[in-house]
């Protein structure tokens, strides 16, 4: 464990807690994409399949449980909670996220570290996480609004992967044989996607106008 990875995990934890608290407190999920939340629940479910079979540390298992619990709770709130579900922007959140999953699955079947059931699903979760934010970014562009909690959620979510890139650089230089090209490239693609969002977010903040994401 190194400071970059701890910072990354804490930022990631903060992002899901910010979102969960927002939805739980104001009983509204306006501006939040259910598609992205469903993709994240799938990301965690396929990445943490080994939670019962492999033990790394108390911290590792605890965080996995928190991420699984929070992501499924958010999906549950948005789909089934009597008050929250009414605030969901169904006709704006129309990104075909299932079409994102198929290419990720095919890619995981082609490019992976080991061809085993767990490893292919783990790689699938890595590719899926890189693109999981897309429905949310599309929704933001359509609804033209970005309330600061959703903005913070995306900011933290992007920040966590940025910290992880620093963690991979650190581990590359401090641990012999620590090379995971697949993880590094997927993480880089993901962060670049957020960087793009941040650029337009910063512009809208600086010029004090509505967030305008590119078409």
């Amino acid at each position: 464990m190194n400071i970059f990875r701890l910072a990354g995990d804490m930022t990631h934890l903060a992002s899901v807690l910010v979102l969960l608290l927002k939805i739980h407190t104001i009983k509204s999920c306006a501006g939040v994409s259910l598609k992205t939340q469903e993709l994240y629940a799938i990301v965690f479910a396929t990445r943490y399949l080994d939670i019962l079979t492999s033990f790394v540390s108390i911290y590792n298992t605890l965080m996995k449980l928190i991420f699984l619990g929070s992501s499924f709770s958010i999906v549950w709130y948005m789909k089934y909670h009597k008050t929250v579900r009414r605030t969901y922007d169904r006709d704006q959140d129309t990104f075909r996220h299932w079409f994102l999953m198929l290419p990720c699955l095919l890619l995981a079947l082609l490019i992976h570290e080991k061809f085993t059931f767990f490893e292919v699903l783990w790689t699938f979760s890595l590719y899926l996480e890189a693109v999981a934010i897309l429905p949310q970014l599309v929704l933001l562009q359509r609804t033209r609004n970005i309330d600061n909690l959703t903005g913070q959620y995306i900011f933290l979510l992007g920040g966590y992967r940025g910290f992880y890139i620093l963690n991979w650089i650190y581990r590359y230089f401090t641990e012999p044989h620590y090379v995971h090209w697949i993880t590094w490239i997927a993480g880089l693609v993901q962060t670049l996607l957020y960087a793009d969002f941040f650029y337009y977010y910063f512009l809208s903040w600086k010029n004090n106008k509505k967030l305008q994401l590119p078409a």
Partner: peptide
């Protein structure tokens, strides 16, 4: 950390 090839990150 854990042995090589073992996913020790979240």
């Amino acid at each position: 950390d854990s042995p090589k090839g073992f996913h020790d990150e979240l």
